[in-house]
Write a protein that binds this DNA or RNA. Sequence first.
DNA 1: TTTCTTATGTTAACTTCGTTAACATTATCC
DNA 2: GGATAATGTTAACGAAGTTAACATAAGAAA
Lengths: 205, 205
Amino acid sequence: MGKYHHGDVRNVLLQQAENILTDEGPAGLSLRRLARLTGVSEAAPYRHFDGKDGILAAVAIAAFERFAEQLESAAESHPDHEERIMALGAAYVQFAVENPQHFRLIFGRERPPLDQYPELRDAADNAFDVLQRAVTSVDRKAEMTLAEAASAYNRALAAWSRAHGIAMLVIDGMIVPPADQDLSSFVLGLLAEDLTMPVNTDKAP
Amino acid sequence: MGKYHHGDVRNVLLQQAENILTDEGPAGLSLRRLARLTGVSEAAPYRHFDGKDGILAAVAIAAFERFAEQLESAAESHPDHEERIMALGAAYVQFAVENPQHFRLIFGRERPPLDQYPELRDAADNAFDVLQRAVTSVDRKAEMTLAEAASAYNRALAAWSRAHGIAMLVIDGMIVPPADQDLSSFVLGLLAEDLTMPVNTDKAP
DNA sequence: TTTCTTATGTTAACTTCGTTAACATTATCC
DNA sequence: GGATAATGTTAACGAAGTTAACATAAGAAA
């Protein structure tokens, strides 16, 4: 009689963990509950993962990969430099809004420490590389000077943090995107706002 | 014989909670440990707070108030509109960097739900009002039209999310501010980057 | 095929946590 | 002074992460 569980327990656990994470977030993901839902003993996950962090790391790696893919495809579909930056920002926020729990997992404090999971570190680095490559790869006829390279790097950071801030504030409910507008045009508008040009209040109608 | 604990337990608990939060973050703040460190029974905190969320809410309220104060004072010290926006952003990030755990508490997912703690909601609203007032209060000789008001609001959102993104990425170690520059000028540089103007690579030396 | 080893399960325990109930003491108000 | 509320305490419950000890399956070695 099949008293023991069969087959590919590791993948079943991972899939189930994905499901739980999606509707309840990293906090609601309890190892014991995961084991129960999977129909396996409460200690079984420890045979396949390095404890709770191990499972979170595995899920986070998958999330980073999807994230990087979506950024990459947004970047590829816009050859123009400026449009590409904007499209990247929109894709960044869109991923966060469509997968808030995954976004929180990969950026939040319950993400397992990068230096304990090299594959997680790699997945993270890869996602950020996509960003930076897309932002800094202007069609360069000449080599960049040092100052230009630094400026390009700063522009990448600025673009990144803008998207990140919007993403965070939106999924935390602090910014509520208008219902009569689609998300990406709202985001594009915010990204393009130039703070150095104050609102003109003296204009006559 | 004084078998029972004396004095102002509530405030001692709060102060101790502040300490724990500062070095270990909301995750490391366990009610039982807090009680033990305070030298009081493990159930005592429940006489003064509505469970763990109650304590976190109290700490978060105090954090919001300090946050708002620092934003306010940054705004007050810069009468010029543009400078004020920038100074606000710098103060925002500075608070996050100097109090990363508090910043995480008031914005993160372990913040108690705003709708269960009206005072927490008020503290949050107040902090954001400071931001929005500072950003939208240009010296207005005329009334703003609807479109101008909307634009001002969007500028406030943009300024806010930029600062928020920088703050988050810096305290998460994703952006490492250069050591040879002070934080606020680094932040000011990032805030002022205008993404719509691409890096010029054709310039001859 | 038989046997040894390893991978994979299971059960049972340990510790910590948040929370509550039941009981004890102190403070406050009439 | 005595009732009543506020503030302590201890003890327990259930859930969590983790580990140890043991059981079974699968595969390599003989």
